Amino acid sequence: MRAVAFAEFGAAPEVQDIAIPEPAEGEVRVQVRAASVNGIDLAIAAGYLNGMMEHRFPVVLGKDFAGVVDAVGAGVEGYAVGDRVFGVVTKAFLGDGSFGEYVTVPAAVGLATLPDVVSFTEGAALGLAGTAAADAVDAAQLGAGQVVLVAGATGGVGNQAVQLAVRSGATVVATAHSTEEEALVTGLGAVEVVDYREDVAAQILVAHPEGVDAVIHLAGDAAALLPALRDGGRFASTLLGSSEQLPTESATVVPVYASPSTATLDRLAENVAQQHTTVTIERVYPLDQFGQAFADFRAGTVGKLVILID
């Protein structure tokens, strides 16, 4: 099969022909129709995870995927050949990625059915970003009447977080800079916009002198955002490994670790199917143009970048 992979540490990823994987016990094989780019893909390609995770060469890049079940391993229940699925590759090693024609994934976690009304392109962009957003919004414990700042609102995770926060009943303040970015976040439901190139906390305190009830931290300096939070508020961050990284006695700091359970993925897919939320796709690429997709990701995105698999 054709896949974006690298054969050894230090080698640049390239499209190459490798063997089609076979599903192990408890796994399904998915014929991938689309996969989206995430920061971790670039980190793996750059070697940042060397020594941190086992690498099984050739390492195929890619975490998010959407496609059709092609084979079912022993002991798998709930999935059959031909099922439309999406999710996140969750294996404890690096090697089996989604930037290829096929990928094998555990059926127990990181996999869910993709409703017929949700496209493969949308499904491919939903798994990791949607999970991170859902877990962050849950950690923020939002409710009606509360005000939340979503820092990093223009990215894939932020797009979902804004919409999920709005659905919780909260008033959303989103970060954006350009006219295009402002139009995006307000279209997703943000009521107020602050410029992330300026002092975000200072802008917040002009309109909300006591501070906002919660901060969802997806981008930027956590310490610089903390003054925007009222006493007793919640600071949910996908970028902090522990609450000790942001010492404070006036707020609750909650590090968020995205966990793509089937229940969470089902909830995300149903939201899209019912048009409660949307998935913003900025651009799509053929597999051979993955390098351009990576370059565009590094330059900054408004929404998600998706690689289509022929």
Rank of each mutant, 00 (worst) to 15 (best):
A3D: 02
E8I: 00
F9H: 02
Q16A: 13
A19Y: 08
P21R: 12
P21F: 14
A24I: 09
V28G: 04
R29Y: 15
V30A: 10
A35R: 11
V37Q: 01
A43R: 10
A46H: 03
Y48L: 13
N50S: 07
M53S: 04
E54A: 14
V59A: 03
G62C: 08
G62S: 08
G62R: 02
G62Q: 06
A66Y: 11
V68S: 07
A71S: 05
A74Y: 11
Y79C: 01
V85Q: 10
G87A: 09
V88P: 02
V89R: 05
K91H: 15
A92H: 13
L94K: 05
L94P: 01
L94N: 04
D96T: 14
S98L: 01
G100D: 08
Y102L: 02
V105I: 15
A107N: 03
T113F: 13
P115G: 05
D116Y: 09
F120M: 00
E122T: 10
E122Q: 15
A124N: 02
G127V: 08
A129K: 04
G130F: 07
G130E: 06
A133D: 01
D135V: 04
V137K: 06
V137F: 14
A140V: 12
Q141D: 06
G143S: 05
G152L: 08
A153W: 11
T154Q: 07
G155A: 07
G155F: 06
G156K: 03
V157Q: 03
Q160C: 06
A161Q: 04
V162H: 07
L164Q: 15
R167L: 13
R167Q: 12
G169L: 15
G169W: 15
A174I: 11
A176P: 00
H177E: 04
T179M: 09
T179G: 15
E180A: 15
E180C: 06
E182S: 05
E182C: 09
A183M: 00
L184D: 09
L184E: 10
V193D: 08
Y196V: 01
D199F: 10
A202E: 15
Q203T: 07
I204W: 07
H208F: 15
H208K: 09
H208T: 07
G211A: 12
V212F: 03
A214Y: 14
H217Q: 04
D221V: 15
A222W: 14
A224M: 07
A228P: 05
A228R: 11
D231N: 12
D231G: 08
G232I: 13
R234K: 07
F235C: 07
F235E: 05
S237D: 08
T238E: 06
L239H: 05
L239S: 07
L246V: 11
E249H: 05
E249L: 01
A251F: 13
V254G: 03
V254N: 03
P255V: 03
Y257G: 01
A258H: 11
P260S: 10
P260I: 13
T262V: 00
T262Q: 08
T262G: 09
A263Q: 13
T264H: 11
L265W: 14
R267W: 04
A269W: 02
A269H: 00
E270D: 11
Q274N: 08
T280Q: 14
I281D: 03
E282Y: 09
E282L: 01
E282Q: 14
V284K: 03
V284P: 00
Y285V: 04
D288W: 02
Q289P: 01
Q292C: 03
Q292V: 13
R298S: 14
R298H: 07
G300P: 12
G303K: 07
G303T: 12
K304S: 14
K304V: 06
I307E: 03
L308V: 10
